[in-house]
Design a binder for these strands. Structure first.
Length: 207
DNA sequence: CATGGGATTGACT
DNA sequence: GTCAATCCCATGC
């Protein structure tokens, strides 16, 4: 098992972090999964909550990197983000899908006995499966209760595809969604075929 | 204080 | 394909 990612991993351009989080492991309690899909958000574009500036809600986004930003979506779901960039700069990576690796039985209990590919194949679903709630907002992702660990070194660099973000109405031109090429655990059927072939990833572990 | 709009999901036609 | 559920928070009066 690798070490939890420290603050300096997150204290970088949010697009870099969004790409590099693919293949890392998110754990919460007895459950864990490998990140297969992310989206980047930055205060400079209107789809980001931080676009409106510093408010009680966006306080976490403008704070130090490496914290969890968890907010309620559509009155129902808790969505998990990792705060990025330097203090005073509002940015975060939304974790959108995981490949379940630990605690699958508990995940099935929480998710209604669905097949493995549907346990964490969406931002609301993975929060439900891992037990992530609003109470985790502002907690440190290196210390827990939610932890994100680095990629397993032996697995190689995963193939990563970029495309438009899901479920937003502003800044839809930005290809700030990233997912593991070929993964069966991403949140949507892949409508758009690979627009560019991923780099040579032969030998990389399938996510 | 009242209103409106979601970084979604699952059930239903 | 359509649509309701449900709540936090930003905004405007």
């Amino acid at each position: 098992m690798t070490a939890p990612l420290s603050r300096d991993f997150y204290e970088r351009p949010v697009l870099e972090v969004a790409r590099e989080l693919i293949g890392c492991t998110v754990e919460c309690g007895e459950t864990a999964g490998i990140v297969v899909e992310t989206e980047a958000y930055h205060e400079s574009e209107p789809a980001c909550h931080a676009f409106i500036g510093l408010t009680p809600r966006t306080r976490i986004l403008f704070g130090p990197a490496g914290k969890a930003y968890v907010y309620r979506s559509y009155g129902i779901h808790a969505l998990l983000n990792a705060v990025c960039e330097g203090e005073g700069e509002g940015a975060a990576v939304l974790i959108r899908a995981l490949k379940p690796v630990h605690g699958l039985e508990l995940m099935r209990t929480r998710r209604g006995g669905l097949p493995d590919e549907q346990l964490c194949s969406g931002p609301g679903k993975l929060s439900q499966a891992l037990g992530v709630t609003l109470a985790h907002n502002g907690t440190d992702l290196a210390r827990g209760p939610i932890r994100i660990r680095a990629r397993e070194p032996g697995w190689g660099t995963p193939g990563i595809v970029a495309g438009p973000r899901v479920g937003i109405s502003k800044a839809i031109d930005l290809d700030w969604r990233f997912y593991a090429a070929g993964s069966r655990h991403v949140s949507k059927p892949l409508v758009v075929k690979l627009r560019s072939s991923p780099r040579d990833v032969r030998g990389a572990r399938e996510l």
